[in-house]
Simulated assay, not measured.
Amino acid sequence: MTTLLESDEHKSLREAVSAFARNHPRATGPAESRHFWQEAGKLGYIGVSLPEAYGGGGRGVTELALVLEEMGAAGNPLLMMIVSPAICGTVIARFGTDEQKQTWLPGIADGTRLMAFGITEPDAGSNSHRITTTARRDAATGDWLLTGRKVFISGVDIADATLIVGRTEDARTGKLKPCLFIVPRDTPGFERRQLDMELHATEKQFELTLDDVRLPADALVGDEDAGLLQLFAGLNPERIMTAAFGIGIGRYALSRALDYARERTVWKTPIGAHQAIAHPLAQAHIDLELSRLMTQKAAHLYDAGDDMGAGEAANMAKYAAGEACVKAVDQAVHTLGGNGLTREFGLATLITAARVARIAPVSREMILNYVSHQTLGLPKSY
């Protein structure tokens, strides 16, 4: 499934990833998911957007989103693709020191190392300005001390480190400013607790506690005075990749429904011949295609260095893909009827998984707020 925006190189990449992903059984557990991740890393798919100097493919978020979409369409959406290469890899590649790049990027690129991302807090979800995880300097040693809590952090148990968003206090203004720290998994004072989720996914969710976690000065990524610039350098790719994640899941669900609708015969003809079945599936396909176009636009803008334009398009793409994903999964389950809820057809678990594309990393309501204020120029209600 290609579009006019794709070059021959992109089409070839899409075909190669699709063939690779379809030749692997759908991952139902951590071991299978890890094996799939490692194989994808060996082929260069995980690190396609990272710099060639550090073992990556030297491409962009456009190609990385394409890879994730095709993996999802084959039934193997990798949530950590959004986190490790897209957010953490991008931030380190853009703002990290040479030592940080040498230490982390080659492993992230070839799939041998994983990095989680910690931003959300119990009292700071959509409003990242309310983050209270605090980073302060030890005047005697120059070390950083981090204290705070994070929640709904994916894959911490399998990650070698977590990129933590903290805040420093500016002594001149008293304002708290966001900054980013690499926290290795076994750092003293860095504790995790797995959350009990109804969501069926190979990647687990965690609550993190940081109790005076001591980090060397070089754990800081970028400039402590950069403010939101560094943070949003990772959040735009996160939205683009979440859109690709949703489109892939929606395509997988739709393909299963189409196979069933072509074969299932209740009276004289396959059920797919009836407009009550055919038209909703056609609408699902249209919505997925439209959301893909916006996702490609957002990725192209980001790769071209247009952070402002990419921010607007990334939010729209994530909104459109989240809605399209939920509708496609719902219609697929409905098409199969009772069979849509059986383990055999593998659609029931997607009912909750599809919600990820709608509510994370930012809810559809907050995206509508963004478009209302930033694009349409309407006043804020908050």
Rank of each mutant, 00 (worst) to 15 (best):
187 T>A: 06
144 W>P: 12
181 F>T: 05
9 E>M: 09
170 D>F: 06
124 A>T: 06
382 Y>A: 12
26 R>K: 14
375 T>N: 00
98 D>G: 10
212 D>E: 09
110 D>H: 12
122 P>E: 07
271 I>P: 09
351 I>G: 00
226 A>T: 00
247 I>R: 13
322 G>W: 10
4 L>F: 12
95 F>Y: 15
282 A>K: 12
236 N>A: 14
66 L>H: 00
278 A>I: 09
187 T>N: 03
194 Q>R: 14
86 A>N: 03
161 A>M: 11
297 K>F: 09
221 V>Y: 10
177 K>S: 15
307 D>C: 04
14 R>N: 00
177 K>E: 13
264 R>A: 14
306 D>M: 00
230 Q>A: 12
267 W>R: 14
28 T>A: 00
303 D>W: 05
342 T>N: 07
162 T>E: 06
67 V>N: 00
79 L>M: 04
49 S>R: 03
214 R>E: 10
90 T>C: 08
283 Q>D: 11
283 Q>K: 15
268 K>A: 11
192 R>T: 08
284 A>T: 02
348 A>I: 11
1 M>W: 01
350 L>T: 05
169 E>F: 03
381 S>F: 12
122 P>V: 01
364 R>V: 03
299 A>G: 09
37 W>H: 07
24 H>C: 09
111 G>L: 10
134 T>C: 09
285 H>L: 13
331 Q>K: 11
200 H>A: 02
88 C>F: 05
256 R>K: 11
279 H>W: 14
266 V>F: 14
324 A>Y: 13
266 V>N: 12
311 G>Q: 06
157 D>F: 01
9 E>R: 13
79 L>F: 09
162 T>M: 07
190 F>G: 08
219 A>P: 09
176 L>M: 11
308 M>V: 14
304 A>T: 10
102 Q>G: 08
73 A>G: 01
178 P>T: 03
6 E>T: 03
86 A>P: 01
135 A>R: 05
44 G>F: 10
21 A>R: 06
206 F>L: 05
200 H>D: 08
349 T>F: 04
128 S>V: 07
187 T>D: 03
234 G>K: 02
134 T>P: 06
140 A>D: 13
338 G>A: 02
300 H>I: 15
343 R>H: 08
68 L>F: 02
347 L>V: 02
253 A>T: 02
318 K>H: 15
350 L>W: 07
141 T>K: 07
35 H>Y: 02
105 L>S: 12
23 N>R: 08
312 E>K: 00
14 R>G: 01
114 L>I: 13
327 K>D: 14
232 F>W: 15
29 G>E: 06
40 A>I: 00
239 R>H: 12
183 V>C: 04
310 A>Q: 00
